[in-house]
Computed example of a mutant assay.
Amino acid sequence: MRIATSQMYNRPASMMTRLTAEADSIQMQIATGNKLLNPSDNPGAYLRLQGLKQRTADDGAYAANIGMAQGLLAQTDTTLDGVEAQLQRALELTTQASNGTLSDTNRAAIGKELDSIRDALFGLANTKDVRGQPLFGGASGDVAYVRATDGTISFAGTGEPSAIPIGEGATIQGTVTGVAAFAAGGSDMFAVLASFATALQAGGDVKAAADSAMTGIKASLESVTLARASGGARAARLELDSDRLIAAGEAREDVRSGLEDTDVTVAVTQLQKTLTILQATQASFSKLSSLTLFDYLR
């Protein structure tokens, strides 16, 4: 069998070129920590990585929304705590005012304090959230509550609070409307306080007005309590959703690492093996290329 001179040289030269390219590729993988330098290195793994990266981006957005919703719920609870404190004070004052031994002057003073509490509640009801929107305004509106020229306070918002996406097909509300927080039982805390304050300013027997006011204030307190409980339940759900995203992200990172990250120990071993074969091939080629015709005729 005769072997052409060109074939004798081309085969080892081709092998050396391939081994050199392989060694360069492995060295690049070690240097960058990435074993997928080009999509063509492993098309299947590359496609999986693109899917993983998209899910990571989606979950990043959901995590940010969860953080925002948690912030809104925390602000809502803090504000409702302030409302609750004001209503508790109003209930104490109403109980005092129902005492038949008080003078009209004493009752008038209580009426003025109730007016101050009403003003404080108006301010709390118009609290702005971290986005600059009314916390209890529902879906839209610059303010949640407005005060008319006659002093009447009414809800100015519309609809329900915007739903915040926290997962694929999952949303949550970060707050409640003023109606749900302050008047769920049909009692308008602003109207209740205004009516009783007016009765106290007028003087005379306020027993019936005090009883009505206490009923209304207790109903408003119940609305606030229910709103806080609802917010607490949603906050607990968000904690679970946050933990779920973290666990999914960790699992996804393990998969990504297996597909993309270089195993340095394995890569170094492969590089040494490749370089050894390359050196042996180079040595053989050098010896082969130094042979003369007389060497073949011996």
Rank of each mutant, 00 (worst) to 15 (best):
R2K: 13
M8T: 10
N10Y: 04
N10E: 08
N10G: 02
N10R: 14
P12F: 11
M15A: 13
A21S: 14
A21G: 10
E22G: 03
I26L: 15
I26H: 10
I26V: 14
Q27W: 05
A31Y: 00
A31K: 08
G33L: 09
K35H: 08
K35I: 12
L36E: 05
L37V: 01
N38H: 08
D41H: 02
N42R: 06
A45R: 05
A45M: 05
L52W: 05
R55N: 07
A57Y: 05
D59C: 01
Y62W: 13
Y62H: 13
A64C: 03
N65H: 07
N65W: 01
G67N: 06
M68R: 10
A74W: 01
T78Y: 05
T79W: 05
L80P: 06
D81K: 06
A90D: 09
E92V: 02
T95L: 12
T95E: 09
Q96S: 15
A97Y: 07
N99C: 05
L102S: 10
T105S: 15
R107M: 08
A108F: 02
A108C: 03
G111P: 04
L114M: 15
R118L: 04
A120M: 06
F122A: 13
N126V: 05
N126E: 07
T127R: 10
V130T: 15
P134C: 09
F136Q: 06
F136G: 04
G137P: 07
G138D: 08
A139E: 06
G141A: 14
D142A: 14
Y145W: 07
V146G: 08
G151N: 03
T152P: 00
I153W: 06
S154Q: 11
S154D: 11
S154W: 03
A156N: 09
P161K: 13
S162T: 15
A163N: 14
P165L: 10
P165S: 10
E168C: 01
T171G: 07
I172F: 06
G174Y: 12
T175W: 09
V176K: 14
A181P: 04
A183E: 15
D188G: 11
F196C: 05
L200K: 04
Q201P: 00
G204C: 08
A208G: 01
A208K: 14
A210G: 08
S212H: 03
A213S: 13
A213W: 07
A213P: 02
A213Q: 11
M214R: 15
T215M: 07
I217N: 03
I217T: 11
K218G: 05
L221T: 02
L226G: 01
A229S: 13
A229G: 12
G232W: 08
A233S: 14
A235Q: 15
A235Y: 04
A235D: 09
L238Y: 02
D241V: 04
S242T: 10
L245V: 01
I246P: 00
A248M: 13
R252L: 08
D254R: 13
V255G: 04
V255P: 01
S257Y: 01
L259T: 06
T262H: 09
L271Q: 04
L271W: 03
L271Y: 04
T274S: 08
T276M: 11
Q279P: 00
A280M: 09
Q282C: 07
A283R: 11
A283N: 12
A283F: 02
S284R: 12
L291G: 02
T292C: 08
F294E: 12
D295M: 12
D295F: 11
D295I: 12
R298P: 00
